[in-house]
């Protein structure tokens, strides 16, 4: 790597840090002094960054005067908060009781199989992230999955395959 491109990269990182600090500051200001704000702030941060990066948590800690231990205590307790970046597309398989009884595990297996096939054919590893979620309240449409925030119901392995294929095309 030559000096020029290393400089450019450093510049990018510094830009990102600058933007991140500004955003964290805005979020903190928005919620400052409001009752019961910590979890709401963490939601705002995850919405912004896709997860709660350590650097951002650190910035938040300084900005709000909350210890890192307090922040991590909360993030690690709640399933909803992520400590690692999500994939390009997120596929959430509902594991509520109705979905479970109607074959959610088969959907999950099919998704895993599709991902393996994709990787084998040279696809990116972080293209899709498949995870189980708690009941999304679409029990009448079981089994259901949420792909990038969009709910799909009354699925079977073939249909879920089609949903993923369609996303991949985008």
């Amino acid at each position: 790597m030559n000096t020029k491109s290393a400089d450019a990269e450093l510049g990018n990182i510094l830009d990102w840090v600058e933007r991140m600090r500004k955003r964290v500051c805005e979020i903190a200001r928005e919620w400052e002094g409001r009752e019961g704000n910590l979890i709401m702030i963490l939601h705002a941060i995850q919405n912004e960054f896709g997860y709660v990066p350590r650097g951002v948590a650190n910035e938040l800690s300084r900005e709000m005067g909350i210890s890192m231990a307090r922040i991590y205590e909360v993030i690690t307790f709640y399933h909803y908060f992520r400590l690692t970046p999500p994939g390009n597309h997120t596929v959430q398989v509902c594991m509520g009781t109705a979905c479970y009884l109607k074959g959610a595990e088969q959907l999950r297996d099919e998704l895993e199989r599709q991902l393996k096939l994709m990787e084998a054919s040279g696809g990116r590893k972080d293209e899709f992230q498949v995870e189980n979620v708690r009941c999304i309240g679409c029990c009448g449409m079981a089994p259901a999955v949420v792909v990038d925030g969009e709910t799909h119901g009354r699925l079977c392995p073939d249909k879920v395959k089609a949903v993923v294929k369609q996303k991949r095309g985008k």
């Binding site: 009752e35 979890i39 709401m40 963490l42 205590e73 708690r134």
Partner: peptide
């Protein structure tokens, strides 16, 4: 005002729910 849960079933229990709004585990 609205306060969000963050994926913890136990927070349906009253004292846990209170802890969660207060920003605790």
């Amino acid at each position: 005002e609205v306060r969000l849960g963050a994926g913890a079933f136990v927070c349906g229990e009253e004292t846990a729910l209170i802890a969660s709004i207060e920003g605790r585990r």
